[in-house]
Design a protein around this nucleic acid. Structure first.
Lengths: 254, 254
DNA sequence: AATCTAGCTTTGTCGGACAAACCGATAAGA
DNA sequence: TCTTATCGGTTTGTCCGACAAAGCTAGATT
């Protein structure tokens, strides 16, 4: 057993980290609200009593974490971390861990089903009209794999949004970012692929309109199974989401 | 339609960002493998032809992103981003977006069910013995809410691990980090709360052993419904995961 | 051979400097 | 009068040089 400690553990965190932590605390605690300015670098230098280089290193940490950003004039302000940016990091992590498409597929199935269930229960009229708008645009590009794939990804984002569950929105994002870019390859490689995709979306939207959960789940399953069948024609589910594919998705995002 | 551009979009990214991007590319592409050294700051200064301050800012970006870390002697090396670290960031984002416990509960229900289904299908003997070990330790501290809550969180992490699905492991982590800290409050506030929790874990482990998916799902549902009932005794599901709670969870993690 | 010590390296921090971009306000032009 | 040009004053991005502390290395000592 440890004897009662005589001294507190002394803090050896480097200064830039302390700067970052201090600012982070203020934002997390709500003392600095999203959108409010943090102050100039010079002001931070004076407040913390450290060098500007040190302040700048701390700022980089927070900037990368999405807690602060620079507005149009490059001044610092607090902000709400965007799911999307963080999800990109996570997707990258998944790549490096060499996850397989099977893992991606299984998890996406779970999350998309949950997503549609939520949407059926709680979609607002605005959500529905966004989905309808997406569907209309999809129907127009049914023969263009690249455009259709992009709209497909958007459709599923909109459905997650319609679920009114932000935790779910966040949870599905990393997998979706890796999952949906393959849609283009699949739609392009399967006869009637585009038509089947739009058809599935149409039934999904219909299910949401009619508040028919069973139909929503059914068509989500079919939709993803279609993806899976298409995918297995061009690659193995058990291959890892490779670096090569990563480069592809990566270049497209830039 | 846009006319064919005469000039390429000129690159205005600041130097530290380019440094970060360049190193990131090497890691993502696998030219630098996790564990391999990046080189000293001085070497990077020479290679990139920029000042050390600039290099250091770039390094901070990557460090925060989890792509590089400093080993025991503070030398830079590439590394696999830890889910846990990234998930912490996501949890923080969820807090700032003021998500409610209802959203957290709903999503966790989905993910934990998926998790147990995977575990029933694919748990290895090692997974099972880890779970058994956790269960044994839990039984010993059934009357100590803090210790039991920690073991509960670990149990669910182990179950996700047993699912052999790393995407799922990652997806459930952010919600779990916010969800499970409340267990302590709940177990402490409900008579027989600890006993019910251990009982549920026992049935879950048993279901995994017998490869009985229905039982696994059933007991996961019961387990989480227990949490929900306990939670509703002390707070409303529709209140946001507040800053005050955040501070609590935050302080405990440090 | 094991240990100690001195020197070299590397990181974390500091101070100061300067060009470029940005802001605000004033002056010049239609 | 409304727009445009100009001109300081700020602020950021980058650079240079410096130094203490901690780690590493290799020779010196026991």
């Amino acid at each position: 057993m440890a004897s009662t400690p005589l001294f507190r553990r002394i803090d050896v965190a480097p200064a830039y980290q302390k700067v970052a932590d201090a600012i982070e605390r203020e934002i997390i605690n709500g003392r600095i609200k999203p959108g409010e300015p943090i102050g100039t670098e010079q002001q931070l230098v004076e407040q913390f009593g450290v060098n500007r280089s040190t302040v700048r290193e701390g700022i980089r940490v927070l900037e990368e974490g999405g807690l602060i950003r620079r507005d149009s004039s490059r001044r610092l302000q607090a902000c709400l971390p965007r799911y999307n940016k963080l999800a990109t990091r996570l997707s990258r992590a998944l790549i490096l861990h060499e996850v397989t498409f099977r893992e991606l597929f299984e998890t996406s199935m779970t999350l998309e089903v949950a997503s549609v269930e939520g949407a059926v229960e709680r979609a607002t009229n605005e959500n529905i009209s966004e989905l309808a708008d997406n569907l209309a645009r999809s129907a127009e590009v049914v023969e263009k794999p690249a455009a259709l794939a992009e709209l497909d990804a958007e459709f599923h984002v909109l459905m997650a949004k319609a679920s009114q569950n932000r935790v779910l929105q966040l949870a599905r994002e990393p997998a979706a970012q890796l999952f949906f870019p393959t849609t283009e390859m699949i739609v392009g490689g399967v006869a009637e692929g585009g038509a089947r995709l739009v058809e599935a979306h149409r039934h999904l939207l219909d299910a949401i309109r009619r508040r028919d959960k069973a139909a929503g789940v059914l068509w989500t399953r079919r939709h993803l199974q279609d993806w899976r069948r298409g995918f297995e024609k061009i690659a193995s589910l058990d291959r890892s989401v490779e670096h090569t594919y990563m480069e592809h998705a990566y270049a497209a995002r830039q």
